[in-house]
Simulated assay, not measured.
Amino acid sequence: MKKNNPPIKAAFNPRIYFIEINQITPLKIFHSKFKTSKKYRQILQSVKAIGLVEPLIVFPDPQKENNYLLLDGYSRLIALQSCGQTQAKCLISTLDDTYSYNSKVNRLASIQGVHMIIRAMKAGVPVNELAHALNLAPQTIINKFNLLTGICDESIKIMADQEVPLGVFPFLRQMKKLRQLDVVTCMKNLQDFSVRHARFLKDTSNENELIPLKNKKNTAADTASMAQLKREISNLRIKQKNIFQTFTIDSLKLTSIKHFIKRLLNNVEIVKWLAEHENEYLIEFNNLVNNDKI
């Protein structure tokens, strides 16, 4: 006989509330240079252009009636304050959990962002309006629109859910389809989409795997550079072997530490004490638990 499982309890009230900003208390304090960061400037510009899209997540303050603790949305809260807003759209959480809303997030991958820009421009949205809303230069929008030119469909599918720097794509365009696909697969398996890694894989490719450059002549300097590159590759492989020998143990230790810190940050009293007395530790703890690569 099958057991009747209890219904799953929602983690927040689905209704959106408009709450006075002065009734919301952040649980963390960012560095003074936070407002100069690129991410914050983009959020601020988006709030100015189209308003708040994603509601803040708050939890009723057990010590103050009609007040709330901010679980997620610090950047959006500061942006609203900078725009002179007095109220914010909020979802009220049923749990005082600061971890899930920051860690269990389907973040927008690079290629997904490019597809959004392509669709917007094809729908007739002017480049200047897109640039203004995203706090980007118009030329950057144009570059993103053309970013996937020369990239095969199979490689695009592999990178669809990955965070890939813009500097990787010029190296991929220099490769033929099969080599491009091989390189992208390798980068995903190693979870390393850095520009340096892309340059390394491109430089170690055979000539018949690359798209020929027009009017390129090999010189003595090119030969010397290639010899130096081979020596560096040899040294890199030795270092890589040494790292692999200690990686498993170090990874296990770090996972255990991260799990313990998550439990600490789920305690509102601990978070409030750290914010008041050891804010630098709180910032580093948040950076650690929000790092999806660990």
Rank of each mutant, 00 (worst) to 15 (best):
N143E: 13
H277W: 01
P170V: 09
D161T: 08
F18S: 14
P55N: 04
N4P: 04
S82C: 08
K202Y: 15
T25Y: 07
F169V: 09
L130Q: 03
I211P: 05
P6Q: 08
M187R: 02
A160P: 00
H31L: 11
L181T: 09
K89P: 15
R173D: 06
L80Y: 02
L136R: 10
A198E: 02
S103G: 02
D250L: 10
I57Y: 10
A131E: 03
S100F: 06
N267D: 15
Q240D: 09
M187I: 01
L236G: 14
T204D: 07
A10R: 12
K64H: 10
D153N: 13
G73R: 00
A220T: 10
E276M: 08
K89F: 10
N286I: 10
A120W: 00
D222C: 04
S205L: 06
N218W: 13
Q112W: 02
Y68S: 00
E65Y: 09
N208G: 06
P7R: 06
L27C: 06
Y99P: 02
A198I: 02
K262H: 10
D192Q: 05
Q87K: 15
S93H: 05
L27K: 04
S103P: 00
R237T: 09
S234C: 06
N242Q: 14
Y17S: 14
P14W: 00
N218A: 13
D203F: 09
F30Q: 15
P60F: 03
V127R: 05
N67S: 13
I261Y: 05
L27T: 09
A109S: 15
P55T: 07
T248H: 11
L69G: 03
Y68C: 02
N189S: 04
P7V: 03
S37G: 07
K89N: 11
F260P: 03
S93R: 04
Q63T: 06
K89E: 14
I8M: 08
F193A: 01
D161K: 05
G124D: 01
L265M: 12
K38S: 05
R173L: 06
K230M: 04
V184S: 00
L274K: 02
K89T: 11
E20C: 05
R199S: 12
A123M: 07
P14I: 04
S32N: 13
K253C: 08
N235P: 02
E154L: 07
K2P: 15
I211D: 05
L264N: 09
L136T: 01
V268D: 09
I50L: 11
E280D: 14
V53P: 04
Q87W: 02
Y101L: 05
M226P: 00
R196W: 07
P6L: 12
R76Q: 08
L229M: 04
A221V: 14
L274S: 00
P60S: 03
T36M: 09
D250K: 11
P6E: 08
A198K: 04
T185R: 08
T246D: 11
H132M: 12
Q139W: 01
I24D: 02
P7E: 07
N235E: 12
M1L: 14
N286H: 10
V289F: 08
T185A: 03
R199G: 10
N135M: 07
T94N: 15
M175S: 08
Q180M: 03
V184Q: 01
H259N: 14
R263E: 15
